[in-house]
Design a protein around this nucleic acid. Structure first.
Lengths: 114, 114
DNA sequence: TCAATAGTTCGTATATCCGGGACTATGGGA
DNA sequence: TCCCATAGTCCCGGATATACGAACTATTGA
């Protein structure tokens, strides 16, 4: 099992952030982690947005968030403690995250007309 | 040739916007269109960011921006007039576009360390 | 009518994404 | 110490998306 990769603050890219957050499941996961007051495990998201996510898929989503620099993950015993890297991202791209999170929140309130 | 599709303002989604702008070429195209004072043609971007884009690829990029609701395109004679839909997007997701464009601009100034 | 220009569409090669199943790592009993 | 359960990761096949060359369409001008 290879060690977890985390980009440094100045290796974070806008493309990476936007790509990671352009997936609704990842965006939901990140929003929860960012809003939580303590680290969250991966398996806390096996069901999210009223649907089940296979754990292999979930693992890939976490890797995507990690690679983008959005979260920090560290093993703690048998599980993983995931925390957001909002501060790092905000240092590199001030205001980006709040705007994206606000947009996602707004969409949840006002879904697109069908 | 099928007619051009443009989503209505409330059909615009965050995922769509973020996905469209997570590609550096599309982000650059959109930034220029958004900053221009008059409509721009597609072929104005056959070279961008010091590289040549095949026109079939370029056409797909424009379609992606259009489908996301980021630009409006209309035929004018033999060419296409592309304008940004910043106002529409901003009505649906206030503050999102300025934040993303600012982040892209910042990255241009402070590229990631290599 | 013909040629030139601007974009689109199609076909194919390539890359990325999804998810099932096997695997690894850690911790808690008996 | 030896299992077993739990939390995640890795691998691989199928599905989906993306890139780009080549052929096509539409419009204008000569």
């Amino acid at each position: 099992m290879r060690p977890l990769f985390h980009p440094t603050t100045d290796q974070i890219t806008v493309e990476g952030i936007l790509h990671a957050l352009s997936d609704p499941v990842r965006a939901a996961i990140f929003a929860e982690i960012a809003g939580a007051s303590c680290p969250m495990t991966c398996s806390a998201f096996l069901t999210i947005k009223d649907r089940d996510i296979p754990k292999s898929t979930l693992s890939q989503h976490f890797k995507a968030l990690r690679d983008a620099g959005l979260i920090h993950s560290e093993r703690s015993g048998v599980e993983m403690r995931n925390t957001s890297r909002c501060a790092d991202v905000d240092k590199r791209f001030p205001g980006l995250l709040p705007a994206v999170l606000a947009a996602h929140a707004r969409q949840r309130v006002m879904p697109k007309r069908r």
